[in-house]
Design a protein around this nucleic acid. Sequence first.
RNA 1: GGGGUCGUAGUUCAGCCCGGUUAGAACGCCGGCCUGUCACGUCGGAAGUCGUGGGUUCAAAUCCCAUCGGCCCCGCCA
Length: 595
Amino acid sequence: MPDSKYSPLPPWQRTDYCGALRARDEGRAVAVLGWVAARRDHGRLIFIDLRDREGIVQLVFNPEYAAAHDVAEKARSEYFIAVRGKVLRRSEGTVNAELPTGEIEVAVSECEILNTSPVPPFPIAEGEVAAEELRLKNRYLDLRRPEMLRNMRRRHRALKAVRDYLDENGFIEVETPILWKSTPEGARDYLVPSRVNPGRFYALPQSPQLLKQLLMVSGFDRYYQIARCFRDEDLRANRQPEFTQIDLEMTCPRPEDVMSVAEGMIAAAYQATLGIDIRPPFPRLAYAEAMERFGSDKPDMRFGMELRNLTEAFAGTAFKVFAEVLARGESIYAIAVPAEHQLSRRELDEMAESLRSRHGLGLAWAKTAQEGWQGPVAKHIGESEKARAAQAMALKAGDTLLMVAGDANKIRPVLGDLRLALGQKFGLCDAEGRSFLWVVDFPLFEYSAEEKRLVSVNHPFTAPHPDDLERLESEPLRVRSLAYDMVLNGQELGGGSIRIHSRELQLKVMDLLGLTREEALDRFGFLLDALTYGAPPHGGCAFGVDRLAMVLCGTDSIRDVIAFPKTQKAVDLMSGAPSEVSPRQLKELGIKVTS
RNA sequence: GGGGUCGUAGUUCAGCCCGGUUAGAACGCCGGCCUGUCACGUCGGAAGUCGUGGGUUCAAAUCCCAUCGGCCCCGCCA
């Protein structure tokens, strides 16, 4: 008698998923197949909780069916078994209200073990979380856990909704190459050697940016793709070397048109996954205002504690530290911690020390009270300045004022980080809160001190704001772009821009970025040529699928929404990738490994 | 490249500061008993390279150094 374990075909087909059985199925003869989640052996009566992707159902093995009962005695956790039996309504008092299937059970008449299992390296159950290293080494088991299955299904639902939405709005899904051209600007590329062209390399795309622009030149009018993107940079809790973007592009849109499509898309994803009704349009906030009020281009607006500019309030101050900064034409910004959230002297000192060591900035703090300001700097600050500051900040007695002096572009982000840290510390961020917004009017360029040249804030193909075109050469740093980022709770979900569709303007921007004509033609000649052939105005956006899935699943780790993620050292613990390859493979590729 | 943190039965963790008994607990696992459990119960049992290497010491899970790995962060991510 051959062991059923070796038969590639199950003895019978399932009629129902375990987790889908309900009281309405009472009396039906059913067949279910699944994994043993738990076994309770009462000697004569045996109960097995059988799990499949839809949930758990209780099986009852009665000694009357001796053969099935014998098999059940041998069954262990995570064995894969097939049973046939009858759905029975549970008697009064044995109903399990915790389970969706708890009103019924399957009385088993036939049972076969289709495969056995060693004791799993960690429990496969709701609410049990093992060390992540173990989970990643045994990812196929980790994915058996209901939470992970739920996350992956929610991700699927979101993408399905996005696809349906974009299809309904006339977008055509087009696949673009994974093996493509290295365009060294931005993140490091993953390179793939070409055997047929020794010494040459493909690059995996950091995004399909240029390809989708070319599709607009081709006349697709509206394109989208669920695109895998690759960036060889260090990993973070929300960053993997390969990730997925919803990439879309349209012909002749205004920024509002792209934003409106994106809002509808996100709303569709929320509706499909969580049944939550998101109501666009989202507020628009200019970059300059975001920096001024929140010290961030992706502000978390679930709470206040906004930055205020106190430069005016301290004009003519006798406080030396501030006076020196003001003399240099720099600024003083502050945030006020409301009286209901008190910081200890020690916490304030630690905060100051952290600012000093990480940014070389001093923190001037003062606690306000009826009898005046308290703190190390209080006595150096004049009463009229205090009054002006109090008015500017709308201070109440008991508030703590945190002030930083220096170059506005440097200190505002520092205060912005401080604001976020305090918001977290005091639990001001409502976990259920959803604060969507668009940040618009980004600058086109910023100055890179490291490279001593202008660099693109977004990417080199972003169109300048038409109102600022005449400043392009004279004051490039004051030119805004037609770019927009969607921000949710302080995290960038996606962003995009209207692109440059004129060869001349594109060459001018590349020139300002320090690219020579030759370099521009060498790297981007195909794009520049394409633009000459009646390229229509176009623009679009890209959204991070993984980050969206994180938000929808309520997790802080991107690895919880990716089936087979990599560790912080970019290793796949399950397969061992990246691994060494044979000398023969290397030789064929003309590659010599030197380290 | 840098900073922080964790690594002890299959699992989750305690023990580490202040070195000294046979390294403990819970869950899981194995065996016996058990016909209404669902975290079944009950009786018994097995189970450890204290990440690895070196050093200090009469003696190291414990102190020191190095190293490997997981995680978080800075740099990096147009």
